[in-house]
């Protein structure tokens, strides 16, 4: 394994807080939320694993004991539907887009329900065809308003997705609970009570 300090981008003499800060920053960068359904999600997962291992290794070296690493919050596979759709879902997830597209197009127009639209949307998303992806996913969410997976996907499409942007601008990390936000909120509350 490569030097864990190098992986986190800190010097070996860095304080525990600095290491933690660097780890947190990188964990935000490669968080699965930023790569949901992304064709590069496997690479982000690898990176996440790498920094988790590095962080654990540093803590172990420093404390001499075992330490709980960060949470990766691995992406959930989603619910699997009926036979054919499960196959299509699998094909999209493994990157076999041509097969998925063929199978989706072979479905009769009258049989195209919410799941069909959801999968078509996912396929378009993978290809980078974001205009159609949003239309299909919204259609799926409208057809089956009780399905949480479709609703979550529709929400993501409507917000324009997330990306880590370091210290710059609004990186779209609004979905995450930031410990600083939490502290500020408590501080404000405290002031109000007085």
């Amino acid at each position: 394994m490569s030097d864990p300090y190098k992986v986190l981008g800190v010097s070996p003499s860095a304080s525990e807080d600095d290491v933690k800060k660097a780890y947190r920053e990188l964990a935000r960068k490669y968080h699965p939320d930023n790569y949901h359904d992304n064709p590069l999600s496997d690479l982000a997962q690898e990176k996440m694993k790498e920094i988790n291992e590095a962080y654990d290794a540093i803590l172990r070296m420093r404390n001499g004991g075992s330490a709980g690493g960060g949470s990766t919050g691995g992406a959930s596979g989603g619910s699997y539907g009926s036979g054919k759709y499960a196959q299509i879902r699998m094909a999209i997830q493994t990157g076999n887009l041509a097969q998925a597209e063929q199978m989706l197009n072979a479905t009769r127009v009258t049989d195209r329900g919410a799941e069909w639209h959801f999968l078509m949307g996912s396929l378009c998303y993978r290809k980078g065809w974001l205009d159609q992806a949003r239309q299909h996913i919204q259609q799926a969410a409208n057809m089956d308003p009780m399905n949480r997976e479709y609703q979550a996907a529709a929400q993501q499409m409507n917000s324009g997705g997330f990306a880590y942007r370091g210290g710059f601008g609004d990186g779209g990390q609004r979905g995450c609970v930031d410990p600083c936000d939490c502290c500020t909120a408590l501080l404000c509350l405290n002031c109000m009570c007085r």
Binding site: N34, N38, L40, G128, L130, A163, R165, G172
Partner: peptide
């Protein structure tokens, strides 16, 4: 604008 933001986010990711 949302679709453009989305492409910008995919670029950044």
């Amino acid at each position: 604008q949302t679709t453009l933001t989305h492409s910008a986010n995919r670029t950044a990711s």
